[in-house]
Amino acid sequence: MSRPELVAPPEIYYGDSEAKKYTQNTRNQQIQADMTYRALELLNLPPEKPAFLLDIGCGSGLSGEILDEEGYNWVGVDIAPSMLEVALEREVEGDLFLQDIGQGLGFRPGSFDGAISISVLQWLLNAETSHPTSSPPHRLQLFFTTLHSALRNPSRAVFQFYPSSDDQIQLITSIAQKAGFGGGIVVDFPNSKKAKKVFLCLFVGGGGGQQEIPKGLEGEEEDGKARFERRRERERSRAKNGRRRTIKDRDWILKKKELYRKRGKEEVPRDSRYTGRKRKPVF
C-alpha cells in the first residue's frame, strides 16, 4: 500500500472523489472511530465536565462525529476543502476552518481543554516546495508552538499517526518538546502488524509527575478489536442515555424569539414554516 502523503499534497489528494470514497468506506469509518475513542481515552479529560476540543486535521468529520456523540463542543481545522465540504454535508456540530496547521494556529492562549488528531501528522513530514517556510521542521515547530499556547494548562493533545521510521518519531517528539510539551509515544499492540497503532501523547503543564505517559495496549489484533467494539457499544448507549444533544423543538425556538421581540430586539427572523427545521446541506 502506498502512502497517500507521498502521492500528492493533502488538499489535492483529498479531492472531491477521494473525500467521498474515504468517508463512505464503512471499514474506514470503523477504524477512524476506534482510534478516536482511544485518543479520547488517552486524553483523559475530567469526567462529566464540559470540554471544548480541537480536532486537528478533522477531514470529513469521522473523528468529529464521535466528539458530537460524546457531547463535546469542538472546532475542526483541515487543509482540504473537499473534506470540509463532506463534513458540512454530514452536519457535524463543530465549527470548521480551512487551515494549514503547518502555518501555525491563531487561537488565543488557553482556548482548548484538549486536542485530538487522527491520521494527520504524517502529512506534515513532507515538504511541498523548497521555500524555507515549507520545510517540515519549520512547519512542525510553528504548529507545535502555536498549539501549545492554544491549550489550557494543564491539558493534553493526542495524535494518532503513521510514522514511516523511528527518525520521524524522533524529529516530531523533539520539536514538540522544544515547543514546551511533555509526554511521549504510546504504542498499542506493538507486536501485531495489522493492529499496531502509534499515538503521540503530549502534555501541557502538570509538572511534578502528575502527567504520566499512559501504557499502550497489549495483545493481538483480535483482542484489540473485541475490546474497541465493546467500548463502542458502551459509549453508544451512554451517549443515548444522557449526554447526547437533542435538536431543539419548534416551540422552544418560537418562545425564544417571542422573548427577544418583547425586549425590542430588531431583526428577529420572522417565524416561517422553516422555523425549527433541520438545515439542509449547503451543497
Binding site: 481545522v77 487543509i79 476543502p81 470540509l84 465540504e85 458540512l88 470548521l96 476552518f97 480551512l98 487551515q99 494549514d100 502555518q103 501555525g104 491563531g106 521555500h131 517556510t133 510553528l142 449547503v282 451543497f283
Partner: peptide, 15 residues
C-alpha cells in the same frame, strides 16, 4: 464561505 473561514496565509505572511 459556506460557513467555513479560510485561514490560509500567503507565503510572505507565514511566520
Amino acid at each position: 464561505s459556506d460557513g467555513i473561514p479560510n485561514m490560509l496565509l500567503a507565503e510572505h505572511e507565514i511566520a
